[in-house]
Structures are given as C-alpha cells and as structure tokens.
Computed example of a mutant assay.
Amino acid sequence: MSKIGKKHIPVPSDVKVQINGNKINLEGPKGKKSLDINIEFLNITFEEGKIIVAPKDPKKQNKIIWGLQRSLINNAVIGVGKGYEETLKLNGVGFRANLKGKQLQLQLGFSHDIMYDIPEGITLKVDKQTTIIISGVDKELVGKTVADIKFYKPVEPYKQKGITSEGQFILKKEGKKK
C-alpha cells in the first residue's frame, strides 16, 4: 500500500473543488488550477472537505500512480489556498536585480545584463536590488523559475558569490596556501 496515497487531502473552506470526469478544477483565493487525472487506475471522490484518492486495482503500477496523483492534487490544493513562495539572494559586488515590465534584469558581473522573461502565472518582487521573491500557484513552475534564475550565476565555493536560495547551505572551501 502507498503510504502517501492512503492519506486524505484536507481542503480548506475557501477552496472550491469540482471533479469532472478526468479533470479536477480547483479555485481559491490565490488563483485557479486544473489537473488531469488518470481515472483508468484511480477513483477520486470529494466528500466532507476531503479529497480521497484510491486505486481501482491493487497492482504495483497502480500504487505508483496512486501516490503520485495524490501528491500532485495536494500540491494544487495548497497552491490555490496559500500559494508557493521562494526567496533568492544575490551575493557579490555589483550584483543587482531590477524589474522592467515583464522581464527581470540581472546584473551579475558579466559584460552584459541578463534579461529573464517572467513566465505566465509567476509574480516577482525585488527588494533592495539583491533579494528576489518568486511566488505563484503552481509549485512546479515556481521551482523551475527559481532553478532557471539560479542557473545564470551558480554559487562558487571559494568566495560564495552567486545566486542562492534563502536558507541554502554552501560549504566554503579553503583557498590555496603558500
């Protein structure tokens, strides 16, 4: 049995759930999200403020899909209810970020500025030019945006310059000795 799949998904009172065939539509204070479900293997019901996900047949493949679908639905419920938020910090002399319309301008010590197009469904805030707050309804899209921005200047281990997530631990290496 799937440990994750057995758990019921609690739905807050301000989130509306509609199950139509192989689609779940969720609507909450932060936004809307629609998910496709594999109804060939799973039974999904919504009753008494809980979403219950159960397999139709206890085969191994069904159990794998069971836990995955339950996690995806849970992430969507949390996303439309509370939303997801990540904070990035720019560490380095002259490293800055600015918002220019639908683009994020990054100055990361290169000879040119980097312009990053903000995806649909993501909101960015820049505080003090060295802190970027990324928020949205979709956990996967927020994580992908964070990864894309961090890719431009990964943290180097000697001086620890680069883009880091808040709370990320970087092991500092000792430099060359004479």
Rank of each mutant, 00 (worst) to 15 (best):
L68K: 14
L68P: 04
L68D: 09
Q69L: 08
Q69G: 01
Q69K: 04
S71T: 13
S71F: 11
S71A: 13
L72F: 13
L72G: 09
I73L: 07
I73C: 07
N74D: 12
N74T: 13
N74R: 14
N75A: 12
A76R: 06
V77K: 04
V77W: 02
V77H: 03
I78W: 09
G79D: 04
G79E: 06
G79S: 09
V80S: 02
G81Y: 15
K82Q: 13
G83F: 04
E85T: 15
E85S: 12
E86W: 08
L88R: 04
K89M: 15
L90F: 09
L90I: 07
N91Q: 10
N91T: 11
G92P: 10
G92R: 10
G92S: 10
V93P: 08
V93S: 09
V93H: 12
F95Q: 00
F95P: 07
F95C: 10
R96H: 15
A97H: 02
N98M: 10
L99H: 03
K100F: 11
K100W: 08
G101P: 03
G101C: 03
G101D: 10
G101H: 01
K102Q: 14
K102P: 08
Q103V: 08
Q103F: 09
Q103D: 12
L104R: 01
Q105R: 14
Q105N: 12
Q105F: 09
L106E: 05
L108G: 08
G109V: 07
G109W: 07
F110G: 10
S111V: 13
S111T: 07
H112G: 02
H112L: 11
H112Y: 15
H112S: 12
H112I: 10
D113N: 15
I114V: 15
I114A: 07
M115H: 14
M115D: 11
M115W: 15
Y116N: 12
Y116E: 11
D117A: 09
D117L: 12
D117I: 11
I118V: 08
P119R: 03
E120N: 14
G121V: 13
T123S: 13
T123I: 13
T123W: 09
L124F: 10
L124H: 04
K125C: 03
V126C: 07
D127S: 00
D127R: 06
K128N: 15
K128A: 08
Q129S: 14
Q129Y: 12
Q129H: 14
T130R: 12
T130I: 12
I134S: 06
I134M: 01
V137G: 04
D138W: 01
D138Q: 06
D138G: 06
E140P: 01
K144C: 01
K144Y: 02
T145Q: 04
T145E: 04
T145A: 03
V146Y: 02
A147T: 00
A147Y: 08
K153G: 06
K153W: 05
P154Y: 05
P154V: 03
P154D: 01
V155W: 04
P157N: 15
P157H: 07
K159T: 13
Q160W: 09
K161N: 08
K161A: 00
